[in-house]
Every structure is written in C-alpha cells, then in structure tokens.
Computed example of a mutant assay.
Amino acid sequence: MGKDIAIFDDMLKLKEAVIFIRKESIKGNLVAKNSLAETAGIEEGEVEPLLARMLDFPEFIELKRVSDSDGNEYIYSASEMTDRYVEILMGLKNKDLLKLIADTVRYESKKYPRPTRADLFTKKPYSIALDELKELLDSLGEESDYKDLKFTEASNGTRFIYSDQHMTKFYATKLAEWYEVLQYEIP
C-alpha cells in the first residue's frame, strides 16, 4: 500500500511539473531544470528521475530538453514553442549576440528567402538596446565568421541584413524595397 501511495505522489509531482512547463512555454519561457524542485514541490534529488520518467509517457512526448553553453539544462513544450524560438532564447542565454544575429539572418535568408530588418533585434524576444545593436552590427564586417553578412537599404532608409550565401545583393535590395515601400504603394 505504501508503494502505491509513493507512485501516486510521484505521478502528482510529475503532473505538476508538466503543467508548469507547458504554462511557461505558452508564455515563451524556458524552464530551468533546477527550478522544478521549488515550482513543482519536487525534492532536489527527484528531479532527474522524474524527468526521465516523462519519456515513458506518450502524452509528454512534446517535452524537450536543451542546455546552454554553461551546461544549465532547460525544458520546454514543443507543442507551445517552436525549436527556432528556443534557439533564439538559447542564443540570448549564451550571451553570444553576434552569433545570434548572424544565425537569425542566415536562417531568414535561406528559409524564406528574405533580408532581415536590422531593427528586428531591438524587439522581443531579442530586446537588444539600440546602441548595443549598432555596435554589434558595426563589428559584423570585422569578424571573419560573418563575412557573408551584408547590408542593404530600402529607399525609405530602413536597413536590412542578408547572407550572400543565400541571396544576391540585387534580390535582397528588391525585397527590402518591396517590404518597406512598394507593397504600400500598389493598391
């Protein structure tokens, strides 16, 4: 009987942890593995075994784990957050903003293909201060790892970044002009 109660208690803790992870994912937040002990009322030593048990349940299959460059582990619900959004959050946690900017520009240039508005990085989830962003963008040309990243402008002065591995300057400039000016002028 005592074993059944322990299993039931474990299941309740697991359910609490999963509900918490899903709610945080809806808000766009990753859940630090070490925070589960306090948020779900789980003993410090029980966190890892409970997380491992999640894999045994098909209804929790969407829960994923990621680690930052310091080895801190985070959990999120892939039903509520895309892997790309998680990559952005991890880039912010790793504090390698230049790489994060480059990865975003390359991703958009390849996937969509489209140039990226430079001011995108001042908005959430990036939230990079304008002065810091200016410094980062100015240093792009100095870094050999980012030589493929180029700038173009629409006729209204809006600055865009693109990767010449995936787009030509002509195409990036035409798209920038379309996004900023032409689409609003054509009825």
Rank of each mutant, 00 (worst) to 15 (best):
M1D: 13
M1L: 12
K3F: 07
F8R: 15
K13M: 10
K13S: 07
A17P: 02
I21Y: 03
R22T: 13
K23P: 03
N29P: 07
L30K: 07
V31K: 00
V31H: 01
A32I: 03
A37I: 10
E43D: 13
E44Q: 13
A52G: 08
R53V: 12
P58H: 11
E59H: 14
I61C: 13
I61P: 04
K64G: 07
S69L: 10
D70V: 06
D70M: 09
D70C: 10
D70E: 12
Y74M: 03
Y76F: 14
Y76A: 02
S77F: 02
A78C: 11
R84A: 11
Y85H: 14
E87G: 06
L89T: 05
L92S: 06
K93Y: 11
N94W: 09
D96N: 11
L98T: 11
L98A: 03
K99S: 07
T104N: 08
T104F: 04
R106Q: 08
E108W: 09
K110R: 15
P113E: 09
R114L: 08
T116P: 01
R117T: 05
A118D: 01
K123N: 09
K124H: 07
K124P: 05
P125Q: 05
A129S: 12
K134F: 05
K134Y: 07
E135V: 03
L136V: 00
E142S: 13
S144V: 12
F151C: 01
F151D: 00
A154C: 04
A154V: 02
G157D: 05
T158S: 03
R159D: 02
I161M: 08
Y162L: 05
Q165M: 08
T168I: 07
A172Q: 02
W178S: 01
W178H: 04
Q183I: 10
Y184S: 07
I186T: 06
